[in-house]
Simulated scan of single mutants.
Amino acid sequence: MIIQRIAAFTDGSRGGNPAGVVICEALPDPTAMQAIAAEIGYSETAFAAPDGDTWRVRYFAPEAEVDFCGHATIALGAALARQQGSGRFALRLNHADITVEGLHSATEWSAAFSSPPTRTRALSAAAAEEILALFGLTHDDLDERIPPVIAHAGMDHPVIALRERSRLAAIAYDFGRGQELAQRERFCTFALVHAETSELFHARNPFPFGGVYEDPATGAAAAALAGYLRELSWTAAVPIVIRQGEDMGVPCSLQVDLDGPRGAPVRVSGSVRSIQPGA
């Protein structure tokens, strides 16, 4: 079994969120996959095996399986392009069928996925208050243009939009308290965002559900946010750019298309780079 380590959503030749990628003839049993993901230690590892004309894919964080992970899908698409040649690959997840396009050439290595269908639902007042308290926020910190909701694109992400970039940069939280809340409510990440312009967002994604304090780039949350913005008729511009990881010293860039009808999948793309063993 070969474990590839690939950083997804890089900012040129730097940054990117590390993911493990394991491409094999048949998926190991879940206990083995969980142990491998814990040993790798990245926020997610994608396991893929051929299944007819598709690839069966499962994602594991260090402490739990997740149904969908965007940055690991980008890493997987890039790995498949390097192994199989550039093209589109059909993926069968636990609860959705999606596609990923991988590009591998002498000058470019990147991927783009089409997300699971998007949707939103109300965030209860009690849960909203608990999230604000967790991150030391008040209602005065919120951007009224983007009210708090639970946005979904394969997993649930409560979206909390902040008026000030400086407030986003100062975010910190108690991990144990956040993990209890995330696991109780089944929140994959907390999507904390700031709209610098209609086309440029900054994001932070705490991920205590999976045993990770914060993810430097989160494609699933980016897709969920894009689906919500489309419901709000946010902008006709295609695509938007989400900058993430800068407050962690790991700059990342995600590109997201908002075109398509309400609830349709969204396209999320980014560049990748290999991570050398021990890095």
Rank of each mutant, 00 (worst) to 15 (best):
G263N: 11
S86R: 09
S114G: 08
P261C: 07
L91S: 01
R262V: 14
G278K: 08
G70D: 06
L123N: 06
R14E: 15
T10S: 12
H95A: 14
F60C: 12
V100K: 01
V21G: 03
D97C: 09
A226N: 02
I2C: 01
Y42L: 15
Y42M: 15
A111P: 03
A153G: 05
T73N: 03
G270C: 09
E129M: 11
S198L: 14
A237W: 03
A224T: 05
F175C: 02
L168C: 09
T118R: 04
F187N: 01
G211V: 07
H152Q: 12
G16Y: 01
Q255D: 03
L229H: 06
Q84C: 14
V100N: 02
A128K: 14
A26V: 08
L168H: 03
R262F: 11
S43E: 09
A38K: 15
F187D: 02
V21T: 10
A112G: 07
A128T: 11
A81G: 05
C24V: 13
V238E: 15
G85N: 11
I40F: 01
V21K: 04
A161L: 06
L27G: 07
I74Q: 02
A112T: 14
S198H: 13
A35Q: 15
S105D: 07
E44C: 10
A127R: 11
V212A: 06
E108I: 07
Q34H: 13
P206Q: 11
G154A: 07
T120G: 02
T73P: 00
A61T: 12
A126Q: 12
P50I: 11
H194G: 00
A128R: 14
R165Y: 04
Q179C: 12
D53L: 10
L93S: 03
Q4D: 12
A195N: 06
A122H: 09
P277K: 08
L132E: 11
Q183H: 04
L132N: 09
G176T: 13
V266M: 04
P206E: 07
A217T: 07
E130P: 00
D143Q: 06
E180W: 05
L142H: 05
G176R: 12
P261M: 11
G70F: 08
A96F: 10
T138H: 05
A75M: 05
I146D: 00
V266A: 02
Q244H: 10
T45N: 09
